[in-house]
Amino acid sequence: MKSLGNVRRSFAPWIDPKSVPYIRFENVTKKFGDFTAVDNLSLDIFEREFFSLLGPSGCGKTTLLRMLAGFENPTEGDIFLDGQSLKGVAPHNRPVNMMFQSYALFPHMSVEQNIAFGLKQAKMNKSEISDRVQQMLKLVKLEKFAKRKPHQLSGGQRQRVALARSVAKRPKLLLLDEPLGALDKKLREETQFELMDLQQELGLTFVIVTHDQDEAMTMSDRIAVMDAGVVKQIGTPAEVYEAPDSRYVADFIGSVNIFEGEVKQNADGLVKLDSPDGFSEIQAVEDHKFETGQKLFLAIRPEKMNLTRERPTDANAASGEVWEIAYMGDVTNYIVKLDGGKMVRASTINRKRAVENPIGYDEVIWVSFEPDGGTLLDR
């Protein structure tokens, strides 16, 4: 049985027609003067889902989060949480907490005082507050740091304090706005897995805003790729990576090579394109019935490209010259200029510490890929 990538968990209520969305944006538009930040957007998010809003700066993702939190109101449309409209509901009356990139910890308070602050505001009794704070400290593994002030903690520890404070009141929904942006790469990667474990342990719904595609791919059950106030595609990480439905999504998620061509033949699940990009012909596995002469784009990831010194037997092959090589440790990235002039990217996994006669700069080689390696797009 073939599948688009590995599945992080079996949780997938969006494919069940009987499932009721926990969060629903219904024809939501948000304008700031003449600028439209969110444009007639509809979106469903399900309970206990880890959902990412991914896109470049200014695409509207943070505006969506702020409307959900109650810091902004839609110009048009409505937002529903657990079946209830949020119109007129003040931020402090929503079962929602929001965690910001800055963490916003109180510098004069200890770790346990920071975590307890929201509980005191909610007028919980002292024994309940003490028990809840201890639970949170244990959850984020900061029991030994309870008496420290924020300036005595590392960036990752401050991030965990902010997270503990955000979930201490047991909100139904946690909103995270670029929560890992201040961490270094290694710590950010470690914290991503901590967030995933925490979300599943607490059984909460997480909605995260990020411009970091690796972050979204790692943590999310589903991703909404946004641009200019609209959602371009919603899918699991594997779906948006392996089966993008537009050139925008293909180009935004990871590295990609895009070839143009006109349909020469479309039969028996195989589409043949007349390509001007250095290939005499491009063949792609595709069940969709494209019209003869129709202009299409083939999106294929660098790791799906093969590099050989001898002409391969693959249907899709073109020769070219190696222009750039980047050794990244786990992989080596190549930029090859095809005979037709197009630059393409290819990646190879470094399975061995040492390689005999590696491909070098200025070398003439063959670039090829399998017919089922890419995705055909008509937009």
Score class of each variant (00 low, 15 high):
L173W: 02
D330R: 13
G269F: 01
G33S: 09
I79A: 08
G329N: 10
P302R: 15
K186N: 10
L81W: 05
V249C: 07
N114K: 08
I335L: 05
M226Y: 07
L174V: 13
H108Q: 12
P179C: 13
L137Q: 05
L65H: 03
K30R: 15
L4Y: 13
M217Y: 04
L68C: 01
A243D: 06
N93D: 13
K186W: 00
H92T: 07
P237Y: 13
Q265R: 14
A243N: 10
I129P: 01
D330Y: 08
K304V: 01
P312M: 12
E303G: 13
S220K: 09
I325S: 11
A37G: 10
S127K: 13
K126A: 14
M98K: 05
A346F: 04
M67Q: 07
V230D: 02
D330Q: 12
D212T: 08
L180G: 07
Y241W: 09
K87F: 05
I282G: 08
A228F: 00
W14K: 14
M226T: 06
V249H: 06
L41M: 15
S154A: 12
P107R: 14
K61R: 11
K18M: 07
V111T: 11
M124N: 05
K186G: 04
G261C: 04
K2S: 15
A116K: 03
R345T: 08
L41R: 05
D227G: 05
G60P: 00
N333E: 12
L81C: 10
R345E: 08
Q84Y: 09
P107Y: 12
E49V: 07
T36V: 15
L273E: 03
Y334M: 10
M328I: 07
N306Q: 11
T348E: 14
I335P: 00
V167W: 05
K295T: 06
V263S: 06
E356I: 01
E363S: 10
V167Q: 07
I300R: 09
D221V: 03
T75G: 12
D268F: 03
Q135G: 05
R170Q: 13
G155N: 08
Q84N: 14
G55W: 02
K30Q: 14
N27C: 10
T218A: 14
I335Y: 05
Q294C: 02
S130I: 00
P276C: 11
G77H: 10
N6H: 13
N316C: 09
F252D: 02
S85I: 04
F206P: 00
N27Y: 08
F369K: 07
K289F: 00
N357P: 00
N125Y: 01
K30H: 15
P244H: 14
G229K: 07
E189C: 04
V256L: 05
D82I: 03
I365R: 08
A90D: 03
A146Q: 11
K185P: 00
I129H: 07
D34R: 15
V38T: 10
S275Y: 02
A69W: 00
D227S: 14
F259Q: 09
A318I: 00
D78K: 15
G60H: 06
P171M: 13
I335N: 07
L65S: 02
A122M: 03
A90P: 00
